[in-house]
Nucleic acid binder design. Structure first.
Length: 431
RNA sequence: GUGGAUGUAGCUCAGUUGGUUAGAGCACUAGAUUGUGGAUCUAGGGGUCGGGGGUUCGAAUCCCCUCAUCCACCCCA
């Protein structure tokens, strides 16, 4: 009976595993450069955890199940609730600021399409306990640090930044009721994703005054914070939010990544829990879905039963990233080594097989990556195998060993080889 | 949940208006090469042509159903 893989999942054969490791290793290295420390949680949690902030509709997008104790559980679709739970639990003991990162494997029961799968990896970094936009700037800078490190430039990717706090203040100024904001965010978030007419129609449905709708449209087209006062009068709250945003950009300048950042009023994020700076990083052409997104969520810990502690962070999935890296030629199938060996031990005589095995074992004992051939076939064949396994050195156990106890040690890069006494080979550390 | 496209070897794909035993390249295995690596040549293994039904003397090819995948909607933490 032939069983196929589940929809939206990937099999990581060695070549694909090399790609995954390339991406994940880069994420971890960038996190560590940025002073973040790694954490992880369980891959499933109580279903309720994901309903708290997102409601019941989200259940359809989750893989959920009931265990034998009738507990309603779900495979994690994101790790932020887990982070909130874990931090809340030890909030009084953890030194602040809390700068944590994780690379969780996540599952969402959505229909797969380009750049979106049902099982994927997502890099998360979060800074908890810093009530200053400096932390927001650092999250963006760390994300860009990673992307720059892969070779992507400001011509390839752009960080679009805005502020929920500013948006909320401006909307209130033009007469939008506070309780209306939550329904408006997901609509405004669609600004660049749907046709203008459809966008207007959605706004008209929610807002009575067409004048207000026009003002919102003008506001959403703003590409510099300086244009805002021309459209909406700034009250104190709006002014504070605006100053904050300017400071984010000032910090990004100091962090050396400002050339990849720009203000974009259309970045809203569909999620309700963002309270301040919000951002997304897109490919410069804007053809792919967002590479990464995040923002400040000051109420999340308290929403999960903890104290009111501020937080900001972001998530970056592997699917879109891989597509972009391949498009830009920064990741090709043969750019990654699937295997690397320090030594390959070739054996040319069945009588010497025991010795070849023993030599390999000694190399491994010394901590080297070593492999040997199960067959004593033509040396050419074994050399080929050594080459395909990316061996740095090849040791040949053959006639010289039989006659005078010598091994041929060949450097695969230079092609040079020398005879070495097997008896003394392991006395000094071979290279 | 809606719409479109595509399913032939491990991979990428040919396959004529329906015609005999379904092919190529790459990959894999072995040999040419009995002791030296991305080369060349030769041979070999590997396919219920996604599955089921129908039309026909005859179906990879035409029709119906079904399944799967991809792409675009919906959604997007």
């Amino acid at each position: 009976m032939k069983i196929q893989s589940v929809k939206g999942t990937r099999d990581f054969y060695p070549p694909q595993m090399a790609v995954r490791n390339f991406i994940v290793d880069g994420w971890k290295a960038a996190s560590i450069r940025g002073g973040f420390v790694e954490y992880d949680g369980p891959i499933f949690e109580y279903l309720q955890m994901y309903q708290v902030k997102s409601g019941d509709e989200i259940v359809e997008q989750l893989f959920n199940f009931t265990d034998r104790g009738n507990r309603h559980l779900a495979i994690r679709p994101e790790i932020t609730p887990t982070l909130a739970r874990m931090v809340n639990k030890q909030i009084n003991a953890l030194p602040r600021p809390i700068k944590w990162f994780s690379v969780p494997r996540l599952c969402r029961a959505e229909r797969p399409q380009k750049g979106r799968l049902r099982e994927f990896f997502q890099w998360n970094i979060d800074i908890i306990g810093v009530d200053d936009v400096l932390a927001d700037a650092e999250v963006i800078a760390c994300s860009l640090d990673y992307l720059r490190n892969t070779g992507l430039t400001s011509a390839d990717v752009v960080a679009k930044i805005s502020s929920r706090r500013l948006l909320a203040a401006l909307l209130k100024n033009i007469g939008i009721a506070e309780d209306k904001l939550e329904t408006l965010y997901p609509i405004l978030d669609k600004k660049t994703k749907i046709p203008v007419e459809a966008f207007c129609e959605m706004l008209d449905k929610e807002i009575d005054s067409s004048e207000t709708v026009q003002t919102i449209l003008k506001l959403m087209d703003v590409h510099s914070v300086d244009e805002i006062p021309d459209i909406v009068k700034l009250d104190e709250e709006a002014q504070i939010a605006l100053d904050e945003l300017k400071r984010v950009f000032a910090y990004l300048e100091k962090m050396g990544v400002a050339n990849g950042c720009r203000f974009d009023m259309s970045i809203v994020r569909g999620l309700a829990y963002y309270t301040g700076m919000v951002f997304e990083i897109h490919d410069a052409v804007g053809k792919l879905r967002a590479i990464c997104g995040g923002g400040r969520y000051d109420n999340l810990l308290s929403d999960f039963g903890g104290p009111k502690v501020t937080a900001t962070g972001m998530g970056m999935g592997d699917a879109v990233l891989e597509i972009l890296l391949r498009e830009k030629g920064l990741l090709t199938d043969d750019s990654l080594d699937i295997q690397k060996l320090d030594y390959f031990v070739a054996c040319l005589d069945d009588d010497l097989m025991d010795e070849a095995v023993a030599i390999t074992a000694k190399l491994r004992e010394k901590g080297y990556a070593a492999n040997f051939s199960y067959k004593t076939n033509a040396l050419k064949k074994q050399m080929k195998v050594a080459d395909s396994m990316n061996a740095a050195q090849c040791i040949i156990v053959g006639g010289e060993y039989k006659e005078s106890g010598q091994l041929v040690v060949k450097d695969m890069a230079t092609g040079e080889q020398e005879l070495v006494e097997a008896a003394t080979f392991f006395d000094t550390d071979p290279v």
